[in-house]
Simulated assay, not measured.
Amino acid sequence: MHALEKEKLPRLSLGEGRNMVTQLIVVNLTIFVFLYFTLVIYKMEGVGEPRFHQDIMSWLRLPADPSLLLVRPWTLITSLFTQISVWPLFTNMVWLWCFGSIMQQLAGHQRILPLYLFGGICSNLIYVAGMRLMPTFHTLAGHEYFLGAAGSVMAIAIGATTVAPRYRIFPLLGGGIPLWMITLLFVGLSTGTLMTSSTYGHTYLPLLAGGAFAGWLYMYQWKKGHDWGAGFNRVLFKLTHVFHPTSQQVNPDDFRKKTATDLEQPPFRRIGKVPEQRLNEILDKINENGLSSLSPDERETLLRASKPE
């Protein structure tokens, strides 16, 4: 288990610049409002909803036909932020907030966007491959499609569980509920919802499986010290800070989550009157088992660390 980040992030704050979960939710909601408003205009003008799907949605959603995907490769990404139905959007955003907030606290905010995109793209590719390769799905590939963040949210959920499966929420309820139990509930609800969403809902199972595998693989490699999103984060930082003063262009690696290879630091560095290594061990224990798991000695140590010198 890795040491916790020194700077804690709020659960959900619209004013927190480093809360990537909030920013993703805002982007998804903004796109939804824009698309829904456009749909209303199409209906008011008498053009009709089928024309709306033909003119706009067909260019954003993921086609199940590989030949059509080759013509519209950008749909691998645009489909992750495209949703026109209220209930699927609501459930995806609630679960994204739930698992994304935990992921931010466990691994840092810079894991969220790379994992969201990596998990979503992998789940989309596996969905298209499944529709093409499985005989029972092949005949449906010509007119089926997918849109929404289900694959990305699944990747974040499995990724967070990979990092700390015994992490507990609601610690006041009998010691808390383990994260792996919440994840099982989420997987069951997501599978059932997608399978009943349409006549061919079973075709979405490869998509969920792809997102789950991508989330596990990404965070498993991260725990081993391989941050696959580091290059993406550096490029994104430079693009978003291109017009900022040089004094504000701090290296984003300064804020990254420490990995196992980074923990080879002198064990005698202290925070106040408590060795930093000892404090990290206590914080890790709280993350996995809750505050109630601390012994009286550990509680006293944590109290001493919180006092100024």
Rank of each mutant, 00 (worst) to 15 (best):
L29K: 00
Q248M: 10
P171Y: 04
T196H: 15
K8Y: 05
T196A: 14
G174E: 09
L279R: 09
P63S: 09
W228M: 14
T246V: 10
M131L: 15
Q249C: 09
L133I: 15
K273Y: 01
A149L: 06
I84S: 14
G192V: 09
L60A: 05
R168Y: 03
D65T: 06
V27H: 09
H202S: 13
P10S: 08
L185K: 00
W222P: 00
S295I: 04
I182M: 13
Q83Y: 01
T240R: 12
Y204I: 06
F52I: 00
G225F: 11
P50I: 02
S190G: 04
L117G: 07
Q265R: 14
G175M: 08
Q277H: 12
R132S: 15
D65S: 07
T30Y: 11
Y42W: 01
G142Q: 13
G151S: 11
F52H: 01
N19K: 05
N124L: 02
T78S: 15
H244P: 00
V47D: 00
P206T: 08
P135T: 03
M131V: 06
L70M: 13
T75M: 04
K224V: 05
N289Q: 14
T193N: 09
P10V: 02
L147M: 10
A230F: 09
V94Q: 04
R304E: 13
F34A: 15
Y220V: 04
T30C: 14
P66S: 05
P63L: 10
L60V: 06
K257R: 14
D253R: 12
I121A: 02
G159N: 01
F243A: 11
H143C: 06
G176S: 07
P88I: 12
T139M: 05
R166L: 09
M131R: 07
R299K: 15
E281W: 03
L208M: 11
D297C: 04
F146V: 05
G159M: 01
L35K: 11
K257F: 03
V250T: 08
D254I: 07
G175Q: 07
M134V: 13
K258C: 08
N289L: 14
T136S: 11
L35F: 13
L189T: 10
R299Q: 14
I282M: 07
I271F: 06
D262N: 11
D253T: 11
L205N: 01
Q277I: 13
N233I: 13
I169K: 04
K43W: 00
F81S: 03
L302P: 02
K224S: 10
T193I: 12
H138T: 06
Q54C: 01
R11N: 10
P266A: 14
A3D: 08
D65C: 03
E49P: 01
A64L: 14
L35D: 10
